[in-house]
Computed example of a mutant assay.
Amino acid sequence: MQQLNFPSYNFRFKNSENKVSIFDDIRKKFIILTPEEWVRQHTVQFLLQEKKYPKSYINVEKLIKINDINKRYDAVVFHPNGELFLLIECKAPDIKITQNTFDQIARYNLKLKAQYLMVTNGLNHYFCQMDFEKEQYVFLNELPAFSNSQITK
């Protein structure tokens, strides 16, 4: 798999029926390794190891309904009270992040109401904080780490 713009992490792999799978620490199972999954797994490790978000607050690939259409978010981080702290959209490294990508995560966030957004293709990472009053997002240089964030509100 392609080298990404993340620190190096140790992953567990298995090969079955000529398909490589990667172990997902959140879902606690092996997932077929696609380019997007490679980015998602790096993102999860980034949240756990660099930002120190507790594993129990992270959720990966769940179904949501947007305008009666089933969609799937890539990953989220919750507050202990169940409110959404961070919504993450992962793309494969060969997918350029465009305004359409931000429109997609913004549509999801109209329903989910996360405080922060992260969009990544593994090579480029974008972090935003929501301003719900002005109905816009403000770009940040990085996500808040667990210890100095408001995640424990």
Rank of each mutant, 00 (worst) to 15 (best):
S8H: 15
S8E: 11
Y9K: 05
Y9N: 01
Y9C: 06
F11N: 05
F13C: 06
F13Y: 15
K14P: 00
K14D: 08
N15E: 13
N15D: 12
S16R: 14
E17R: 15
E17L: 11
E17M: 13
E17A: 14
E17S: 14
N18E: 14
S21I: 04
S21H: 14
S21E: 15
I22N: 04
I22D: 03
D24H: 08
K29P: 00
K29I: 09
F30R: 07
I31V: 15
I32Y: 07
I32R: 10
L33Q: 08
T34S: 15
P35Q: 04
E37V: 04
E37A: 07
E37C: 06
W38Y: 11
V39F: 03
V39T: 12
V39G: 03
R40H: 06
Q41A: 06
Q41F: 05
Q41H: 08
T43S: 10
T43K: 01
V44D: 02
Q45E: 13
Q45Y: 10
F46Q: 02
L47F: 15
L48V: 10
L48I: 13
L48P: 13
Q49E: 14
E50C: 06
K51W: 04
K51S: 06
K51F: 12
K51L: 15
K51Q: 06
K51I: 09
K51R: 13
K51G: 05
K52D: 11
K52S: 12
K52I: 08
K52G: 09
K52T: 08
K52Y: 09
Y53M: 09
Y53R: 07
Y53E: 02
Y53Q: 04
Y53D: 02
P54A: 12
K55W: 01
K55G: 00
S56D: 12
N59E: 03
N59H: 06
E61T: 01
E61S: 01
K62D: 04
K62E: 07
L63Y: 00
L63F: 01
I64R: 04
K65A: 03
K65R: 10
K65P: 00
I66W: 01
N67R: 14
D68Q: 15
I69R: 14
I69D: 09
N70Q: 12
N70S: 10
R72H: 08
R72M: 05
R72C: 06
R72D: 01
Y73Q: 00
D74P: 03
D74G: 00
A75Q: 00
V76Y: 01
V77R: 00
V77Q: 01
V77E: 02
F78H: 07
H79Q: 11
H79M: 10
N81S: 12
G82Q: 10
G82K: 14
G82L: 14
G82C: 07
G82E: 07
E83P: 00
F85V: 03
F85Y: 14
L86K: 02
L86N: 02
L87T: 02
L87V: 05
I88P: 06
I88T: 09
I88S: 02
E89P: 05
C90A: 11
C90H: 04
K91L: 10
K91S: 04
K91H: 08
A92T: 08
A92S: 15
A92E: 11
P93Y: 13
D94Y: 15
D94P: 02
D94E: 14
I95K: 12
I95Y: 13
K96H: 13
K96M: 10
I97T: 11
I97Q: 08
I97Y: 09
I97N: 06
T98P: 02
Q99V: 12
Q99M: 10
T101N: 12
F102K: 13
